[in-house]
Design a protein around this nucleic acid. Sequence first.
DNA 1: GCCCCATGCTTCACTTCCTGAAGTATTGCG
DNA 2: CGCAATACTTCAGGAAGTGAAGCATGGGGC
Lengths: 115, 115
Amino acid sequence: MSTRLTEETCPVCATADIICGKWTILVIRDLAAKRTRFCELERSLAGISPRTLSLRLRGLEEEGIVARHTFPEVPPRVEYSLTAKGRALLPLIEDMRSYGREWLGACRDATRAAA
Amino acid sequence: MSTRLTEETCPVCATADIICGKWTILVIRDLAAKRTRFCELERSLAGISPRTLSLRLRGLEEEGIVARHTFPEVPPRVEYSLTAKGRALLPLIEDMRSYGREWLGACRDATRAAA
DNA sequence: GCCCCATGCTTCACTTCCTGAAGTATTGCG
DNA sequence: CGCAATACTTCAGGAAGTGAAGCATGGGGC
């Protein structure tokens, strides 16, 4: 599915190519909840492997959805944040949240519970 | 990611578990565009394997998002359609369509172009 | 009469993707 | 000195998806 992003791709396909990668939408959700550090995301996304997290963040950065800032410290400190292009996905995440509450019996918001 | 749907799952996770399966959101998109037959979906979803399409439809039916109607004919005729629970996903698909148009340079809607 | 087509799948071998576990460099703390 | 922290990387193994072929049945074309 990842090689269908051509100039003739439909917009739903194009968006799906990005957000349907495993864990991707949850990475964006947690960045929106002001989790900025790799280790923070690793903890809040229980079950993700560090390799996959790194791949997802790298891909989102390359797509311009996430910005990466490194600070020359020890241990190394990298902070990730959503760009405007990333924040434009928040309405979709809100709709997913509403849908989950209404149709899937999911009441507890992970980001709020973890706060 | 598929085993995290517990009673404490957050609503975004719960929704992601469903729509982020590969091809799933596109199956729902095409059912919304009144493609009802297995072979129609097979053609409109270029690249999907028949096994995966069958798995996706079966999973969506089990989730109550899709309804399946069989007609005792030869060759066999099965028609799939969205339930109310399935149609409730259409705002998400619209969000994805808007996002794709605005941010990903995707203008042509596959469902419209194929019509 | 045989071959091909249609539908809605299933099976199998192979490829791709993700995870679990371990590792890396460096500094600080007990 | 050992452990912890961070932000990753590497590797072996498991899970998921694809490509190709197959199945049953009836109809149409040659």
